[in-house]
Computed example of a mutant assay.
Amino acid sequence: MPTAIIADDERLMRDHLRLRLQQVWPELEIIGEARNGNEAIALVQEHQPDFTFLDIRMPGTNGLDAAQAIGNASHIVFITAYDQYAVDAFEQGAIDYLLKPAESERLQMTVERLKARLKATPTDTSSDLKGMLAQLTHHIGSTTKPVWLQWIQASVGQELRMIPVAEILFFQSDEKYTRVQTARYEALIRKPVRDLAVELDPELFWQIHRSTLVNVHSIDGVTRDLRGRQLVMVKGKSDKLEVSRSFAHLFKQM
């Protein structure tokens, strides 16, 4: 049986990829999971998997550095949320990649390529990686448009869902969890609002309270309660989100 390991610092993303791989390639055995590049390198050395799925952005040793250390000990498949420019860099080398989130149809194409690679010796990707890293560094450093978060991985009951941020009405945190509210359902994640605030496009999501982010397209209006506090009304919902004084300037013209 072909074997693989998955390296991603987000457990929900590892679970999502494992599930998708089971659906499109049930013969593939996932023999280990890593949370960072160092763990991935150690797992490859210990288990010698046929394939290593590496997230590019991981704390400590990232996916690119880990791939250089792994060399030709395993076929490398990068998991990336980068834009098309970066994807073009991957296309230039003998390196496989998946865009986050991994969808079944796209994953099926990758699996067919990986099956063909089982018959070949893993390619030493050192030179390809150096060129790719140089292109990515140049592109990310020169572009004026940041790459904002596009998907939220969240658990709804026992189900893992990949929620497009454009569908989210608001985020609201308490001490342990952050509520992710869409028009159709509610989900919970552990990432606090303070972290989401720097990862989301500030033109799409306004922070109106230290514990609340709201999608500007979901704002139905602003009212005041008897205590004079500003409250944001949400389209299609009964929720009224408090605006703290620090963010009251956002609604000066209202």
Rank of each mutant, 00 (worst) to 15 (best):
H209L: 03
L204S: 11
D55K: 02
M13C: 10
E105V: 09
A4G: 08
M1P: 14
D65I: 14
Q92W: 00
M1V: 15
T178E: 02
F205C: 05
W206A: 04
D55V: 10
L169V: 12
A34R: 06
I31Y: 00
H217E: 12
M132K: 06
E112Y: 00
D96A: 11
L54G: 05
K252A: 10
E105Q: 14
M254C: 06
A67V: 12
V193W: 02
L12I: 15
L12Q: 11
W206M: 02
T52Y: 07
R194M: 03
M254H: 14
A248W: 00
R184L: 05
S246K: 05
I140H: 00
E27D: 15
L28V: 11
D8N: 05
Q84Y: 15
A66W: 01
I168R: 03
W25D: 07
V216H: 06
D88Y: 14
A4V: 11
L133W: 10
R35K: 09
L226T: 15
M233L: 12
E203F: 12
L118I: 03
H138A: 08
G63W: 06
Q108A: 11
I219P: 00
T123F: 08
I76M: 02
A248G: 01
L118Y: 13
R224Y: 10
T61M: 05
K130F: 03
A67F: 10
L114N: 02
L19H: 15
P49R: 02
M233G: 10
D225Y: 00
S218P: 00
I41T: 12
D195E: 12
P2M: 02
I41H: 01
T52C: 09
T110R: 02
W151P: 11
M132D: 14
H47E: 07
Q153L: 09
V216C: 04
Q135C: 06
E159R: 11
Q153F: 15
K130N: 10
Q68E: 15
L17S: 10
E175L: 05
R224V: 14
K119I: 02
F171P: 10
I163L: 05
H139S: 07
Q158N: 14
T144A: 03
V180T: 09
I5F: 08
R14L: 01
G131Q: 07
K252S: 14
L43R: 02
H139P: 13
L241M: 10
T137P: 00
I31V: 15
L54E: 07
T52Q: 04
I5C: 05
T52M: 03
L21V: 15
A86R: 01
V44A: 03
V222H: 09
L129Q: 03
H249G: 07
P122I: 07
L64I: 15
V193H: 02
P122G: 04
E242Y: 07
K145H: 09
T125C: 02
P146I: 11
E29L: 08
F90C: 00
N215F: 12
A154Q: 08
A81N: 04
T80H: 05
E203T: 15
I41Q: 00
D50N: 13
D65Q: 14
L160Y: 05
Q68A: 09
S142Y: 11
V180F: 01
N62S: 09
